[in-house]
Amino acid sequence: MVTGGTVRLLLSNGGEAALELTVEPWADTYQLLPKQTWVVVTHSPAADGSWSGTLRGDEPFQVDHRPESVTVWVNGNCFHLSDAEGNEIDAADWQCPAQGSAS
């Protein structure tokens, strides 16, 4: 069971070149190939489902895009990264709730 909230962020690369994806604050780096769509899932560490926010309060993600890269700041206590079909690519913390868990 997940305490707090669970959120998902879709990332798609509609370009013709790979994008470097960095997931912070873990500094995990991946290559998002052209025409790929990935999903970043995170869980709020707060029992009430609130988020700390990055630049603004109560925001689960902050996304920064540059010509050849995307950085996703995750404000949860862990993250899952999967493809559009739900196949896991990576999880930042083995204590993260099961990927299918949602509140």
Results as ranks from 00 to 15, higher is better:
Met1Ala: 11
Val2Leu: 09
Thr3Phe: 11
Thr3Gly: 06
Thr3Ile: 11
Gly4Phe: 02
Gly5Asn: 10
Thr6Leu: 03
Thr6Asp: 05
Val7Ala: 06
Val7His: 01
Arg8Cys: 08
Arg8Val: 06
Leu10Pro: 03
Leu11Asp: 06
Asn13Phe: 13
Gly14Ala: 13
Gly14Asn: 13
Gly15Glu: 09
Glu20Tyr: 09
Thr22Glu: 12
Val23Phe: 01
Val23Cys: 04
Glu24Cys: 04
Pro25Lys: 03
Pro25Met: 02
Pro25Ile: 03
Asp28Ile: 02
Thr29Ile: 06
Thr29Val: 10
Thr29Ala: 09
Tyr30Arg: 09
Leu32His: 03
Leu32Pro: 00
Lys35His: 14
Lys35Gly: 06
Thr37Ala: 12
Thr37Ile: 07
Trp38Lys: 02
Val39Gln: 11
Val39Cys: 07
Val40Glu: 02
Val41Ile: 11
Val41Ala: 04
Pro45Ile: 04
Pro45Arg: 08
Pro45Gln: 06
Ala46Gly: 04
Ala46Lys: 10
Ala47Gly: 05
Ala47Thr: 07
Asp48His: 10
Asp48Glu: 12
Asp48Leu: 07
Gly49Ile: 04
Ser50His: 07
Ser50Arg: 10
Trp51Arg: 00
Ser52Tyr: 02
Gly53Ile: 01
Asp58Ala: 08
Asp58Val: 05
Pro60Gly: 02
Gln62Leu: 13
Gln62Arg: 14
Val63Ala: 05
Val63Leu: 08
His65Thr: 15
His65Asp: 13
His65Gln: 15
His65Asn: 13
Pro67Phe: 14
Pro67Asp: 14
Ser69Gln: 15
Ser69Trp: 03
Val70Arg: 05
Thr71Ser: 13
Val72Arg: 00
Trp73Ser: 07
Val74Pro: 00
Asn75Gln: 15
Gly76Ser: 11
Gly76Val: 04
Asn77Met: 07
Cys78Pro: 00
Phe79Asp: 00
Leu81Ala: 04
Leu81Tyr: 00
Leu81Met: 04
Asp83Thr: 07
Asp83Leu: 07
Glu85Gln: 15
Gly86Tyr: 11
Asp90Thr: 01
Ala91Lys: 03
Trp94Ala: 11
Gln95Trp: 05
Cys96Lys: 02
Cys96Ala: 13
Pro97Arg: 00
Gln99Asn: 11
Gly100Lys: 06
Gly100Tyr: 07
Ser101Met: 06
Ala102Tyr: 10
